[in-house]
């Protein structure tokens, strides 16, 4: 899957999985901060994203300290998926 296609898919999955009913996938910027500012996601959302990565992409985050970098934005998640799928 190409990067752009993956980012669009991720935006749709984030909106659905996290029940962001008032957000349209296309409104989420590729590099927009997901936690804190930006979308304002919280710690439960982070756990949901971990489950999403495991169930949809078969990927685990082995070091929890990597979480903030991986989940910073849609772009960082997409890059993590592509890099680790190749490996």
């Amino acid at each position: 899957m190409e990067l752009e296609e993956l980012k669009q898919k991720l935006k749709q999955q984030i909106v659905t999985q996290l029940k962001l009913n008032e957000v349209k996938p296309e409104e989420i910027g590729d590099d927009e901060q997901l936690f804190g500012k930006g979308l304002g996601l919280d710690s439960i959302d982070a756990l949901e994203l971990v489950v999403l990565l495991e169930e949809e992409y078969g990927l685990k985050i082995n070091h929890s300290e990597d979480g903030p970098k991986i989940f910073y934005s849609v772009s960082t998640i997409a890059n993590f998926i592509l890099e680790n799928k190749k490996a």
């Binding site: 996290l18 439960i44 959302d45 756990l47 949901e48 489950v51 169930e55």
Partner: peptide
């Protein structure tokens, strides 16, 4: 066999 933190809370 699945889990959902958002439901668990």
């Amino acid at each position: 066999g699945t889990a959902s933190p958002a439901i668990f809370v």
